[in-house]
């Protein structure tokens, strides 16, 4: 009698436990399906976004004239020539401005500050580190306010390629510093020790061994920040980039033309200097797109969509390049 009762409760317990296990397994499976659903939704949004742009802008994308004509008052004639050329010029300034400073700051923080015995240097490094973390959280439009006040108004650089490039350069600086540090961190210390052991100075070690070993990862970070800078719109609007631009920045040493008011003939009045393009007016891809999106006439939406496709392709190309480069360098590492 007694034995049977015990068995019964054991069976009940067993059933309960089985039930609890199957309930928990059910939740487990349900969660993984929901999460997978969210992931697919995210992917779907990306596809939908690109697809919608393609469909909306297909007429313009098919016509070659769109890529090689200036913005115009009528949607049919308007193109993106000054926008994509301007983007290239501005990004060139951004890269030339931010890479040397960003990489140098990364090297200092990773290779010098960490090993310093001075209390003051330690304190300074902590301070700089907190600072860089905070800068990464500052809204991009605030960098635009900085560019407006410092570069445009105080330094009187006006609404130029130089102002835009340096504003974006400051914006991407934290990203470059952080990725440089990550890249340097991954170089094994045996390499450094070997170099120091045969009498190389610290800088020789960095320049000849550590930098070449980590150049791939640094490059990846640079490409990612360039792709961010290319799509950045708000800071450039803030520095005053939203204007009608139907000319290209002058190439170095290209002939400077002037038009005779009476006859309408163009004649050459010397050549442009090597740096005149820096002070030229400009427009860039995302601003051109923003301008067209904001127009009340629906005709311009077609142009906006087409410009969007070009812009997305530019950033996708850069990001894919960064991803491939990372995989390539990861495979090539020999230690």
């Amino acid at each position: 009698m007694q034995g049977e009762e015990l068995d019964l409760s054991a069976i009940v317990k067993d059933v309960q436990m089985r039930k609890s296990i199957s309930v928990r397994k059910f939740w487990d499976t349900l969660f993984s399906f929901v999460a997978l659903g969210f992931l697919i939704l995210g992917l779907f949004v990306l596809l939908l976004l690109v697809f919608q742009l393609f469909v909306d802008g297909r007429e313009k994308l098919a016509s070659l004239g769109f890529y090689f004509s200036f913005p115009a008052p009528s949607a049919e004639e308007a193109g993106i020539l000054s926008a994509w050329v301007g983007s290239i010029f501005v990004i060139m300034v951004t890269v030339l401005f931010s890479i040397p400073i960003g990489v140098a700051a990364g090297i200092y923080l990773e290779e010098y500050a960490k090993t310093s015995s001075s209390q003051f240097v330690r304190f300074l490094t902590d301070f700089i580190e907190i600072n860089i973390t905070n800068l990464a959280g500052v809204p991009s439009i605030v960098y635009g306010l900085l560019g407006l006040e410092i570069f445009k108004e105080t330094l009187k650089l006006g609404n130029s390629v130089l102002t835009a490039g340096m504003t974006l350069g400051i914006l991407v600086l934290p990203v470059i510093v952080v990725t440089t540090r990550e890249a340097l961190k991954s170089v094994p210390s045996a390499l450094k020790e070997g170099s120091i052991a045969i009498g190389a100075s610290k800088w020789q070690t960095i320049w000849d061994l550590i930098l070449p070993a980590s150049i791939g990862s640094i490059l990846t970070g640079v490409i990612v920040s360039v792709s961010r800078a290319i799509g950045e719109t708000a800071p450039l609007i803030t520095v005053g980039a939203l204007t009608f631009i139907a000319f290209l920045p002058p190439l170095p040493f290209s002939p400077r033309l002037e038009v005779n008011v009476d006859t309408g003939e163009a004649f050459q009045v010397g050549n442009y200097g090597p740096f005149d393009w820096l002070f030229s007016g400009y427009t860039v891809m995302p601003i051109q797109m923003f301008d067209w999106v904001g127009r009340p006439s629906p005709d311009f939406r077609v142009n906006a969509a087409a410009a969007g496709v070009v812009l997305v392709l530019m950033t996708l190309a850069l990001n894919s390049a960064a991803i491939f480069l990372r995989i390539y360098f990861r495979k090539r590492i020999k230690w």
Binding site: V45, L48, S227, T233, A234, V293, G308, L316, L318
Partner: peptide, 14 residues
């Protein structure tokens, strides 16, 4: 990462 790289003005259009 590619989704993160889409420029915000394009998201605005979307």
């Amino acid at each position: 990462e590619l989704l993160a790289g889409v420029p915000s003005v394009v998201f605005g259009y979307f």
